[in-house]
Amino acid sequence: MPDQLLYALEVTLNGLMAGVLYSLVALGFVLIFKASGIFNYAQGVMALFAALTLVGIQEGQVPFSHLINAIFGTEIHHFGWTVPAILAIMLTAAVMVVFAWAVERFVLKHLVNQPDIILFMATIGLAYFMEGVGDLMWGADIKKLDVGLPQGGSIWLEENTAWLGGDGFYGFFIDRLDIVATVVAAILVISLTLFSQYSKQGRALRAVADDHQAALSVGISLRFIWVLVWSIAGFVALVAGIMWGTKSGVQFSLSLIALKALPVLMLGGFTSIPGAIVGGLIIGVGEKLFEFFIGPMVGGATENWFAYVLALLFLVFRPQGLFGEKIIERV
């Protein structure tokens, strides 16, 4: 097989893997938009906050230590213990549930029946608030996140595919972290689908997504559903934070991963969980292949803008996205 073809195949595989990582971020947006019609600007910051909290708990860091030390003149930074990764993940998930409750109690509850733009603005405020609180709680330094996930190219894959090409072909490169992310994303999507199809709360969630008023009229608690859906989105943010944080360390740039999710949402639709996955895969593969074939002709660095161009192209033909619900309003 010609090396160029093999490289294109390698780029495609890596594009699919990158797409899964984009989808993980997009999923959180979809869940909240589906249940409440809110475009949650804070989703990226939620991933950052979750990852910061996870590292903080794992390392036994004292939250707000800088503030405490500044006020009381103390020198405390750590409790002196470390927490195993699994337990730390569970504790962080619990923190995200508390966060979901707080969002409902202190923000959403007061904005019921407000126009969507007000709710959107509230999530912008929430994003900046959380970024500040995260900074105060855990500090601004870059933290290494290690929950035991493998990283680096799969040597087995490289060795067993090297024969496909010539002397210059080293075999396919696939980061083992990306493979884990793909498996986790698959489990997450299957779990979410089963949950929404077969559990009582899941059906209630779908009912709220379809029609708030009708759901209320049959006794579904809107407030409970909001807490539930923000908790699930918080958990998805935690998963995304772990995957991205393992790659780059946990730092404030992590919140910018939301930018990677926007074209995915435009393409896949804001209300479809499968759409977030398929959209992510298309964006991932599309931008990587474009960079591979066209990038060298135009000076490279095409991925950021090409993702949006691709999403816009889809929008022209399907404004609701690939899997989004078509809204027909009669006048």
């Binding site: 390698e10 890596n14 990158a18 790659k247 910018l256 931008e287 990587k288 960079e291 591979f292 991925e303």
Partner: peptide, 13 residues
């Protein structure tokens, strides 16, 4: 690499 540079898979491939 486009800013902020969180995704560099293409470049490293």
């Amino acid at each position: 690499v486009d800013s902020p540079g969180q995704e560099q898979k293409s470049q490293w491939l």
